[in-house]
């Protein structure tokens, strides 16, 4: 998943087209679900790029850029599931049409609905519901503490993702101390060490900005299960950071 670069010797030999074909073969013909996730990850930037372009050129009907991105991710997943790698057409060309179509459909649905609200609000509600799981009323202050630390860790992870994108500029701004940056990098490292399902959920959600519904679709699990994995993953990271030197 994210951040795992192949070793230099392997990178020397790998051919992009063959690596892509290998993922399609193993996903489509050998049923390796993890390859579906790898394909999603591989083409995520295409979906994002199309979403940004469509956001600039279309009336948004109250949707924000993140909403466009979520629609694009849905289109990407649909494209991955429908693409036939043996037909010879390039996936990117095939996916472009699906992604644009998903955005068009999503905008149409959204403009019909009076009850839509922004992706950001949805995201925060999802996190809140997920982290409230298992909270007991016997000690409401302690429960609130757990909830607050969970939300804070989420924000930390989200900011750490931006930090990764800005690796090229090492200067710290006025609001970033070295210790804070180190904490963010530790957080990413701890997420990387989680077992596969929790890791995938946290990485897709915080690093790639994918919402629970799309992650559920990606992993073939229910939205409720994704919420549980999110909760369990963040709590595990919290414990590990607590006992870290």
């Amino acid at each position: 998943m994210s951040g795992r670069a192949p070793r230099l010797g392997l990178a020397l030999l790998q051919r992009a087209a063959q690596v892509e074909a290998s993922l399609w073969r193993r996903f489509r013909f050998d049923g390796e679900v993890v390859c579906r996730e790898a394909l999603f990850e591989r083409h995520l930037s295409l979906a994002r790029k199309i979403a940004r372009g469509e956001f600039r050129r279309r009336p948004a009907y109250g949707l924000d850029r993140s909403d466009f991105e979520q629609l694009a991710y849905g289109g990407l997943l649909e494209a991955i599931d429908r693409y036939d790698p043996l037909r010879g057409a390039l996936f990117e060309a095939f996916a472009r049409r699906r992604i644009r179509g998903a955005i068009t459909d999503g905008i149409a649905k959204s403009s019909e609905s009076a009850a839509h609200f922004s992706h950001r609000q949805r995201l925060e509600n999802e996190r809140l519901r997920s982290l409230s799981q298992g909270a007991t009323s016997s000690d409401p202050i302690a429960a609130l503490g757990v909830l607050a630390s969970g939300l804070a860790l989420g924000l930390l992870a989200e900011n750490a993702a931006r930090l990764l994108e800005q690796q090229a500029s090492p200067e710290l701004d006025a609001y970033e101390s070295l210790a804070w940056r180190e904490l963010q990098l530790n957080m990413l490292a701890e997420i990387e060490k989680l077992p596969s399902p929790e890791r995938t959920v946290l990485q897709q959600h915080y690093l790639n900005g994918v919402d629970f519904a799309q992650i559920a679709e990606l992993m073939g699990l229910s939205r409720g299960r994704i919420s549980q994995l999110h909760h369990a993953g963040l709590m595990a990271v919290r414990e590990r950071l607590r006992y870290k030197d």
């Binding site: 063959q18 074909a21 290998s22």
Partner: peptide, 9 residues
């Protein structure tokens, strides 16, 4: 060799 160049070390 084909597997190696396909990322399947």
């Amino acid at each position: 060799f084909f597997q190696l160049t396909s990322g399947e070390a």
